[in-house]
C-alpha cells in the first residue's frame, strides 16, 4: 500500500473490529446521511489539505450530491461543500456509532 496510515492509529484499530452494516468511512454514507469524522487515514500532507477544507476530526459531515456516475461525491462539511473522489473518501474514517446527529 502506497499510503501509510499516519493519523491516529489507535482509533483506527478499534474501527477495524467494527460491525458490518455501519458506515465506516465517508464513502459508505448514502445521500443525506451524516457521520462524525474520526480520523483521516492519509499521509500528513493530504490530511492537512483535507483539514483546511473543513474535514477536521470531530466534525459532522453530510453526504450531499454526487457527479453523474457517482464519483466524485459532494460532502457538506463545516459550512461548505467539497467534492471528493471515492478513492479519497474511503480514507476519511467515521466515528461510530454513525447515527444521524440532530
Amino acid at each position: 500500500m502506497l499510503l501509510q496510515p499516519s493519523f491516529n492509529k489507535r482509533r483506527r484499530r478499534r474501527h477495524r473490529g467494527g460491525r458490518g452494516a455501519e458506515p465506516l468511512h465517508l464513502g459508505d454514507l448514502h445521500r443525506g446521511e451524516q457521520g462524525i469524522l474520526d480520523h483521516i487515514d492519509l499521509p500528513p500532507e493530504a490530511a492537512r489539505r483535507l483539514m483546511e477544507l473543513g474535514f477536521v476530526p470531530g466534525t459532522l459531515v453530510t453526504a450531499a450530491g454526487c457527479a453523474p456516475g457517482g464519483d466524485p461525491r459532494v460532502f457538506r462539511v463545516d459550512g461548505t461543500e467539497v467534492a471528493v473522489r471515492r478513492e479519497t473518501a474511503v480514507h476519511l474514517k467515521l466515528r461510530h456509532p454513525a447515527a444521524p446527529v440532530p
Binding site: 483535507l50 467534492a83 471528493v84 479519497t88
Partner: peptide, 9 residues
C-alpha cells in the same frame, strides 16, 4: 503521488 482531488464548491 496520489494527491487527492478536492474541490470546494
Amino acid at each position: 503521488e496520489p494527491t487527492p482531488f478536492l474541490l470546494e464548491m
